[in-house]
């Protein structure tokens, strides 16, 4: 064979050996195990820790909220839909899971994800709730929708709705078909006057004044007594004999009366402590204890002892309301006395 041909063949052979060697050296060991790709990539992708944890994860600590939520119409909306991903909550667990960052791309990207995770208590519920509930062409008719500009005058949604169980109990409060005769209510209120006062101003510290109270609340209170959801030896009997129309007339009568504040004999520091704590209550019961919504009661000027009893009844479960149950849970007896003193001392309108 001519010399130049031999050289050429040797060169080609050397190139071949180098190329094959390089392929073996540079190709990942797991490449081609399952197909034309790096088999280890699958496990690397699957190794990323889930960031959305699911409602069961939240349930472990927030049992009460969970029970409330799972019984309501919002049970199709999981916790993390509104509150965001739970991976970094509670913060104590933060130290535990940070994934080991190795230089490979998958784990780098997986670790970076956590930077954006934030659990939140929604500050602006109008903005949040209208994501789903703003009336908008394209949304199916079965979806509950509101015209934002015409609904509740721009108030925060949680003033009336419990976000965890948003259907208003008081939304079922029947409204009279024709204008209600408050005078007819006065006739029927004769039986109530012994305890609640002829003009709706109670003479007794334990019984509430009714004058000027919200209509919707009065109706739902009477309904609750009648149905047994709220119990009281005196009221249960009284409410049993009332029809729905009676309740509406009674409520209209008491709502039309002018109220009189019961006042408080508590010391000034107690009252001011109560005022500070009442900030939480103001969203529903009004800044000065005057509720802006017919469904929720005004508290200004109510009897101090009655308010104490009511809050304690929510704590023991004798009075039931999903919103109140959650709110009173953390209150001590001292807190309750301060709150009652503050609201009893307020002037009512």
């Amino acid at each position: 064979m001519p010399k130049h041909i031999v050289r050429l063949l040797l060169l080609i052979a050397t190139f071949g050996v180098v190329a094959i060697g390089a392929k073996f050296y540079f190709t990942d060991k797991s490449f081609g195990v399952y197909g034309h790709y790096r088999a280890d990539a699958v496990a690397e992708i699957a190794a990323a820790a889930p960031i959305y944890r699911g409602a069961a994860y939240c349930q472990a600590c927030h049992r009460e909220r969970f029970t409330q939520w799972s019984a309501g119409i919002h049970k199709v909306v999981t916790c993390e839909t509104c509150h965001g991903a739970a991976a970094k909550h509670p913060s104590a667990q933060l130290a535990a899971p940070p994934a080991p960052v190795d230089p490979r791309m998958h784990s780098r990207i997986a670790a970076e994800r956590l930077d954006h995770v934030k659990l939140m208590i929604p500050a602006d519920t109008v903005k949040l709730c209208t994501l789903c509930h703003e009336k908008m062409p394209g949304r199916p008719a079965t979806q509950k929708q509101i015209e934002v500009s015409r609904h509740a005058a721009g108030q925060q949604c949680i003033v009336c709705h419990n976000p965890h169980s948003p259907k208003l109990a008081a939304a079922g409060v029947p409204q009279a078909a024709k204008p209600v005769d408050a005078a007819a209510g006065r006739m029927k209120a004769a039986a109530c006057a012994n305890c609640h006062g002829a003009e709706g101003v109670s003479p007794n510290p334990v019984w509430p004044s009714l004058a000027g109270q919200q209509r919707g609340y009065l109706v739902s209170a009477l309904q609750a007594y009648k149905a047994g959801a709220r119990r009281d030896p005196l009221m249960t009997e009284q409410a049993k004999g009332l029809s729905e129309a009676d309740m509406i007339e009674l409520a209209a009568f008491y709502a039309s009366l002018s109220c009189q504040s019961a006042g408080s004999s508590a010391a000034a520091p107690v009252v001011s402590a109560g005022k500070a704590k009442a900030a939480t209550c103001a969203a529903c019961h009004g800044a000065e204890g005057a509720s802006g919504n017919p469904a929720w009661p005004s508290l200004a000027g109510l009897q101090e002892a009655y308010l104490v009893n009511a809050l304690k009844a929510y704590q023991t479960g004798a009075r039931q309301n999903p919103m109140m149950a959650g709110l009173v849970k953390g209150l001590s007896d001292a807190d309750i006395e301060q709150l009652a003193a503050y609201y009893a001392g307020l002037k009512c309108k």
Binding site: P50, G84, E112, L131, C132, M136, R139, P140
Partner: peptide, 15 residues
Amino acid sequence: IGCLRCVEACKTENG
């Protein structure tokens, strides 16, 4: 209903 919670969740879950 076009609430886009899926888009939000996807961005968070997958960085």
